[in-house]
Simulated scan of single mutants.
Amino acid sequence: MSAPPVVELEAVVVEYPTGAEPVRAVDGVTLAVQPGSSTAVVGRSGSGKSSLVAVMGLMRSPTSGHVRVEGRAVDSARVRHAVRAGTIAMVFQSFHLETHLSVTENVMLQWFVTRSDESRRSARQRAADAADLVGLGHAAARRVSDLSGGERQRVAIARALFARPRLLIADEPTGNLDETNAELVCSLLYAAPAQTGAAVVVVTHDPVVAAGADRTVRIVRGRLAASPQDVG
């Protein structure tokens, strides 16, 4: 029996109240992301990408429709928070790093916050391994404030990988990077399924960034505009 999708959206709608008529940012989207796959979600600014990824990443509930993670219905805020913490990691355009901390400290930030049963020594070793994976093992002790934009995004990816996610979502991860660093960041993200088994979803407006994914789905005015084989 095959594993269920890491995340599955069924007839998802996201509306925002504005004046007399609500704005429908996501309009009946059905989409499944399989384990160990890479998916690019593309669309212009205002197409609904950010709202879609907020639902997919369990950062908000849909106005209507259903969300399942590894076959489990996400039907309450309590379930959403619990499932997200153990399953999903995010990488954002703006990095969201603690610039006064070192690379290693940023990568293992989850350990500092949760204070899990894992020893500090073990967590630091995992953080070092994640930094090595993104080519920053040599910079483990450096402060993030001393790094370039491309290096900071690589730290953000290492931090996401440290969480051992089954789903890694990157929202416009190359938006603040030059072409060389954008290519490097893309190669790291699209290598994650083979290296870690995580499914990867990259949200972008750039067709060059999207080209590295196993499949591409396009969102236009809140709806998916893709062939059936792209969205199943």
Results as ranks from 00 to 15, higher is better:
133 L>R: 05
136 L>I: 05
86 G>A: 13
211 A>K: 06
31 L>T: 08
33 V>R: 09
214 D>K: 11
123 A>S: 02
16 Y>W: 14
203 V>T: 14
207 P>M: 09
48 G>M: 14
197 G>F: 03
5 P>H: 11
64 S>A: 06
99 T>R: 15
32 A>V: 11
84 R>D: 10
115 R>T: 11
175 G>T: 11
103 V>A: 14
133 L>W: 01
227 S>Q: 09
125 Q>M: 13
43 G>H: 05
91 V>A: 02
24 R>I: 10
137 G>R: 06
94 S>R: 15
124 R>G: 02
178 D>G: 11
34 Q>S: 10
17 P>N: 12
6 V>C: 14
60 R>I: 08
85 A>S: 12
6 V>F: 12
55 V>S: 08
174 T>G: 08
130 A>D: 08
1 M>P: 10
178 D>M: 09
97 L>V: 13
63 T>H: 02
200 V>A: 00
76 S>C: 14
227 S>N: 05
79 V>I: 15
140 A>R: 09
55 V>M: 11
217 V>M: 05
153 Q>F: 03
184 L>W: 00
202 V>C: 12
123 A>H: 01
189 L>K: 07
175 G>P: 08
20 A>I: 04
25 A>C: 04
5 P>C: 14
79 V>S: 15
216 T>C: 06
145 S>W: 07
22 P>K: 13
131 A>Q: 02
232 G>I: 03
36 G>T: 02
55 V>P: 06
40 A>P: 04
213 A>R: 02
43 G>I: 05
22 P>R: 14
105 E>S: 02
81 H>F: 07
66 H>C: 01
205 H>V: 11
230 D>A: 14
173 P>K: 12
37 S>E: 12
112 F>W: 06
137 G>S: 07
53 V>Y: 01
82 A>V: 01
227 S>Y: 03
194 A>G: 04
197 G>Q: 04
142 R>A: 11
145 S>Q: 07
197 G>C: 03
198 A>T: 08
218 R>A: 01
170 A>V: 01
211 A>I: 04
151 E>V: 08
93 Q>K: 10
43 G>R: 05
81 H>M: 11
51 S>E: 15
143 R>L: 13
146 D>G: 15
158 A>P: 07
157 I>V: 15
59 M>Q: 09
176 N>Q: 13
109 L>N: 03
43 G>Q: 02
110 Q>K: 03
28 G>D: 03
